[in-house]
Design a protein around this nucleic acid. Structure first.
Lengths: 222, 222
DNA sequence: CTCTGCCTGACGGGAGGCTGACAGGCGCCG
DNA sequence: CGGCGCCTGTCAGCCTCCCGTCAGGCAGAG
């Protein structure tokens, strides 16, 4: 599950991101409405956490544009305590739920899960690739039905790739996700990590496209 | 796809270049407006990443001169965080999109991809020719519905031609786009590459115009 | 027919990726 | 506070396979 967080306050954005990642989501953050609109339009997110009251293009604007483009992305809006007008407008504009700041992380996660369930039907919290299963709620991984323990980094890597089945992800992008943007590191670190992960998962789960990047095969039933 | 990066800060220029090359583009860097203008005018780039605030001839100047010469190159401008005036002027001067510094590499790549698609007149991120499909987001290629693995160079070549359906591209130009300007190479390298690519794609996808160049047939219904 | 431009199979060099070994760092436990 | 594991980045060496080169063949133009 990929979630886009739209929040201009860095501190809050970081909190939300951490909370969501802890809950097993993959989260990206943007800080203004224009960027949010663009990302939501061009990349396959599963939900949007949207702060109203953004610079440039405000949250409601984003929401209206999304709905006008018939992008049926589940949207959870965040509003100030006294912003009941906003809230009404937000719901009118097509938000799926709202949350009043300040809020508890658990509540955000719960509501997000709820609207994901509601709108996406039954998008399973379990990611699969071949014989490998990853439960995003419990963070349990099993191979061939056998429970398998992964380290923190291994889990993040696997989860990251499983969220993008069939997509070839350049190595640099993977590294950025694992360690945050801009952290310089030997490319070899990723290769070493991959070796260790593949040893646990068995062959055929993570493929290498020489010169392009890595990918897990799309799970096409025959 | 060849991109010209115009950025006077070496560090940032290197980052962008690396990011773009990682994403499969061929990128050249120039550091000032005069050089940018010259290169853009004399060589066939597919897009321009243009920092505003350059020495000699500034970014907006470059842009205006380009547009005045009716060079319809897609241009993505980079602006400082607080430079909203610049941004407006940039859009007015004919930029296709802008990005506020600092930015994430992924976003630059995504926006670049978007304006390339937009200006090439493609509505969808999926390029087609006959039975061949190429998804620019996932980098997945399928022929006849069957997923097909291409090498990095094969992918670039196919993507390059698919972006110009119906257009005959001279071999030299293709080579420039694949390897960057000035890399001397036997013409035969391209032919060998084409042979290998055609073997994967099947016949009728990439045609040869003897003495002129290569092209993929425009996808016109009968 | 001839010539030129393009195609194709074979092959070898070299870059990119893999892996086993090792060491530093961090948390955990006694 | 000290010792002990485990995790993870780094290094060096090996291996795979991509791609440029070469030689030879085919076909279209004149």
């Amino acid at each position: 599950m990929r979630v886009l967080i739209v929040e201009d306050e860095p501190r809050i954005a970081a909190d939300i991101r951490q909370g969501l990642e802890r809950a097993g989501y993959v989260a990206d953050v943007v800080a203004d409405g224009e960027a949010a609109w663009f990302r939501a339009e061009t990349e396959p997110y599963d939900a949007l956490v949207l702060d109203l009251g953004l610079p440039r293009l405000d949250g409601l604007g984003v929401l209206r544009r999304l709905r006008a483009s018939e992008i049926a992305l589940p949207v959870l809006i965040l509003t100030a305590r006294d912003g009941w007008r906003e809230r009404v407008e937000g719901i009118d504009a097509g938000a799926d739920d709202y949350l009043v700041k300040p809020f508890r992380m658990e509540e955000l996660v719960a509501r997000l899960r709820a609207i994901l369930r509601r709108t996406a039907g039954h998008a399973s919290p379990i990611l699969r690739a071949g014989t490998v299963e990853l439960d995003t709620r419990t963070r349990a991984v099993s191979v061939d039905g056998r429970p398998t323990e992964l380290t923190a980094l291994e889990y993040r890597l696997l989860s990251f790739l499983l969220h993008r089945p069939g997509q070839v992800v350049p190595a640099g992008e993977v590294l950025d996700h694992l360690h945050g943007v801009g952290t310089e590191r030997e490319a070899n670190a990723l290769e070493a990590l991959l070796t260790r992960l593949r040893r646990k998962l068995g062959p055929g789960v993570i493929e290498t496209r020489r010169g392009l990047g890595y990918c897990v095969p799309a799970a096409d039933g025959p």
